[in-house]
Structures are given as structure tokens and as C-alpha cells.
């Protein structure tokens, strides 16, 4: 069941597997994405996110298993499915000699209709100049063009591979608002990312992929408890490691002179209060990579085996 209580399945995979010679890119993926939710597909580089998306788009064919979108088989009903799907590739390639407007017109006509008014509205919201040739656009502006072409036909399902790469923070915020609107309209988004904070901000549920295997499907709130941050405090006097070790969510404490390093998950309130007992000279705070989270919390054990244990 989805986060919003809607159980209409928009994307469903059955033991979807893709092998390239000796490389198992995706193994036995069973996944359901529900109407009206924004589903984040998380994983480090090479985890199988793009492979999954390319299988869903029928760009590549499964070694075994199958997938359905809106109840239709991706292998046999690809063109019919794509009437209802918007797609943003991870490495967006466009026609350099066309302007933004010509690009949208071309892709719109391939879809059967170029909704010029809405496309212009989206471009304006993202601050995109459609009269420049694509080859003259920066990477960020090309990405904006990619987002507009994905959304302009108001598809029932949007499949986006790393949609915010190259976007500046303000444009990201605008894009997040657009996603909120899409969610309110009851449309569905399947987006891949390796940015944990982005997924926390935008998604209802996340699937976590590692080495071609689905490790976990979680509601975003659960993921927040799983994620940890690494903190370093530079103090005026040597701290007591024990005082920090006993704080909730704190682990892996080490002290070197006046510097204390530790990991913390969950709320920071207790850590801040403990640190306030010292004269704090500096504070470093960094989020771990997904790879570190996986190694810390999931190890090498795949999703289905942990669930059945």
C-alpha cells in the first residue's frame, strides 16, 4: 500500500533480471509503485538504477522476469505505455542545432501533441530561454529543457533518472514544488537519485538498490532514522568521549586532543546541548554517502533475505 493509501499499482516488476555477459546488473527485482506517489530509487553508482529505468522504458530487454506499467507489459505494449509516460534520461542528450522550442516541438509532435502553452509556462518557471540553440545552453539549462519535455504532456507517470543534476538550488526548489503539484494531481513519479536529502525532501517511499539487488523499500520517515551524519567538533579544551557516547544516536566516538569525532543519527538536540557545555571553536558536519549507509546498516544482506529472516 502506498503512503497515501492508494493501492492502484502503476509500476510493477516481477523478478526482473538483467545480465550482461558475466555482469549481473539487476537481479530478481520485485517492486510496486502506486498511483499518486513519488517513489525514490536510491543507490550508489552502478547499483542498477539506470538499468531498471531502461528496462521499464523498454530500451533494453530483461534476461528474465517482466515489468508492467499501468497494467501493460513493457515488452509488448511499449508504444501504448509511452503515451502515458514522460522520461528524463540520466545522461540527457539533445540535438545541439535545434533551439529549445524546436526540441520541445519535435518531441511534442512525436507524442502526438505539442502543448505549447504549458511547455512555455514550465520553461518560464524554471527560468529557461527556449530561443537559444541547445549547443549554446549550459548543462543546467539543458537539464531544465529535459525536465520541461518530461512534464509538458502531463504524463500519468514520470520516470526520471537523476533529475536535478546540474540544477542550481533555486531551480531545484522550483522543481520540488512542481513535484508536489504532480503528486496533488494524483500523478506518479519514479525518480532515481543518489542524493539522500533530495529524496527525503521529495519522495513518499524509497527503494534502495545495491549491487543490482533491492535492499529495502522504506517510507521516507524510516529512512531518516537510518541515515546518519558524521560530526567533528573543534573545542577549546579536551572533551570527554564518554559524555558523548551515552547520548542517543551517537556512535563511533573518537577523541584527538581538543577534537572529537562521532556519528549521529536521528535528532541532534542532545548533541548540541552536550557540545554547548564546551567552548566550540568550529564544527564540521557531513552526510555519509549512500554506500557508507548501506555498509553500516545493510551490510551485504539483500532485502528479500533480511525480510524472510
Amino acid at each position: 500500500m502506498s503512503a497515501k493509501g492508494n493501492d492502484e499499482v502503476v509500476v510493477r516488476t516481477y523478478a526482473l533480471t538483467k545480465r550482461y555477459d558475466s555482469l549481473l546488473a539487476l537481479e530478481g527485482l520485485d517492486l510496486e509503485v502506486y498511483r499518486g506517489e513519488i517513489f525514490g530509487y536510491l543507490g550508489p553508482n552502478g547499483a542498477g538504477k539506470t538499468t531498471t529505468i531502461r528496462l521499464l522504458m523498454d530500451f533494453i530487454r530483461p534476461t528474465s522476469g517482466r515489468a508492467e506499467i499501468l497494467g501493460m507489459d513493457t515488452r509488448t505494449q511499449g508504444p501504448e505505455i509511452k503515451r502515458h509516460v514522460g522520461y528524463l534520461p540520466g545522461e540527457l542528450a539533445l540535438w545541439g542545432h535545434l533551439t529549445g522550442r524546436q526540441t520541445l516541438e519535435y518531441l511534442g509532435r512525436l507524442r502526438g501533441e505539442f502543448p505549447e502553452g504549458y511547455a512555455l509556462e514550465l520553461a518560464e518557471r524554471l527560468g529557461l530561454d527556449l530561443d537559444k540553440k541547445v549547443r549554446e545552453l549550459s548543462h543546467g539549462n539543458r537539464q531544465k529543457l529535459g525536465l520541461v519535455q518530461t512534464m509538458m504532456n502531463r504524463p500519468e507517470l514520470m520516470i526520471m533518472d537523476e533529475p536535478t543534476i546540474g540544477l542550481d538550488p533555486l531551480v531545484r526548489q522550483e522543481f520540488y514544488q512542481m513535484l508536489d503539484e504532480v503528486r496533488r494531481e494524483g500523478r506518479t513519479v519514479f525518480l532515481s537519485s543518489h542524493d539522500l536529502s533530495e529524496v527525503e525532501r521529495t519522495c513518499d517511499r524509497v527503494g534502495i538498490l545495491r549491487k543490482g539487488r533491492l535492499q529495502s523499500v522504506e517510507h521516507v520517515d524510516a529512512l531518516k532514522h537510518v541515515a546518519f551524519k558524521r560530526m567533528t567538533l573543534y573545542l577549546a579544551e579536551p572533551p570527554s568521549a564518554g559524555d558523548f557516547e551515552k547520548l542517543p544516536g551517537v556512535s563511533d566516538v573518537s577523541v584527538e586532543g581538543n577534537v572529537i569525532r562521532f556519528q549521529v543519527s536521528g535528532e541532534l538536540d542532545a548533541v548540541i546541548k552536550e557540545a554547548a557545555k564546551y567552548h566550540v571553536i568550529d564544527l564540521h558536519y557531513e552526510e555519509p554517502s549512500l554506500e557508507e549507509i548501506f555498509l553500516t546498516y545493510y551490510g551485504e544482506v539483500p532485502y528479500e533475505r533480511r525480510n524472510s529472516a
Partner: peptide
């Protein structure tokens, strides 16, 4: 990579 966009349409 532009073929991906063409084939993402019906």
C-alpha cells in the same frame, strides 16, 4: 543518446 528521447515517445 538522442535515440533514447525519440523512443521514449509512442
Amino acid at each position: 543518446g538522442t535515440l533514447d528521447l525519440v523512443l521514449s515517445t509512442p
